[in-house]
Design a protein around this nucleic acid. Sequence first.
DNA 1: TACAAAAAAGATATTTTTGTCTGCTATTTA
DNA 2: TAAATAGCAGACAAAAATATCTTTTTTGTA
Lengths: 161, 161
Amino acid sequence: MSAIYFPFKSYFAPLHCYPMYSKSCEYAIRSVIIISQNSSNSLKTNVKEISQQAGVPEPYIAKVLQTLSKQNLIQSSKGPGGGFYIDESSKNLKLIEIVTAIDGDGLFTACGLGLKECSEKNPCPLHESFKSVRTDIKKMLEKTSIHELANKLEDKLFTSR
Amino acid sequence: MSAIYFPFKSYFAPLHCYPMYSKSCEYAIRSVIIISQNSSNSLKTNVKEISQQAGVPEPYIAKVLQTLSKQNLIQSSKGPGGGFYIDESSKNLKLIEIVTAIDGDGLFTACGLGLKECSEKNPCPLHESFKSVRTDIKKMLEKTSIHELANKLEDKLFTSR
DNA sequence: TACAAAAAAGATATTTTTGTCTGCTATTTA
DNA sequence: TAAATAGCAGACAAAAATATCTTTTTTGTA
């Protein structure tokens, strides 16, 4: 069984750009994909492995994983042979749960002009234009399962060799 | 003629959330809408007015406006009676130009997992899911004109009184 | 020409995000 | 029950984003 390895650090986008979500969230997604894949083989993954395979700083991702663990999106066990895993109850984990846990729901609820009072009843000029886009993002995140992403990545690794 | 006033600072979203773009960009959009409206009445708008009307910190927005001005998306004139304005050549200014100038194109190009090597030929597992969403955002930003936003806001102000 | 208004430029300060380090606690195994 | 493993918690450090301040340059006007 081959472990999933994301490219090394130098392969990650530097650039001046404002991406769709935060580094913490990006790291979380990568990590959870790895955990999910190992979990489907009944394996627990410790922070060191996650850090290496996801190409993510170890102490930092540890923090992020704690956040997910507290919200019971992923599970953990201490002691030798311990690590993070995804149990039956989280088998159907969706991308939106990870994103919301780490970045909040700003991406699909916040006003395009940053107005707190912007709403259906009292829309800002950007409101309607943004509405469908936001809805689409949310739908996409809601329907994408972590499990499915892990499978896709694994397929890709096998077919590209 | 009534000036456009965005709500005061306390009305802006605080919250823990990762919105679609940066504060700088948000401020830029608000400011440009105000400049556009005044420009259609052949008025120049100085930083102080922009700051007050957009509910944005004055020295900060000054910096942001300099960036836009250097890229010739908006125009400026120094001296008494000077300020920022939008001339004929920028009359058809689109939202995407502002967003790109301030936040770069990460929002509609960056990989969902932060992989630099992610592309059509070598897609990450999130690539396809994100593709249509990204395209939609880009299209929306491309078709939305600043001028039109200014008009919408003005209409709203008049009809809501 | 002198003065005042206003943007441009650059330096500095604050806050948030990202990243690191250290020690503690819980769990498994021998 | 001791030792090793591994997550947990909190403090700390660095970098980036956000915000402010000061000086300079340009321009219009008295």
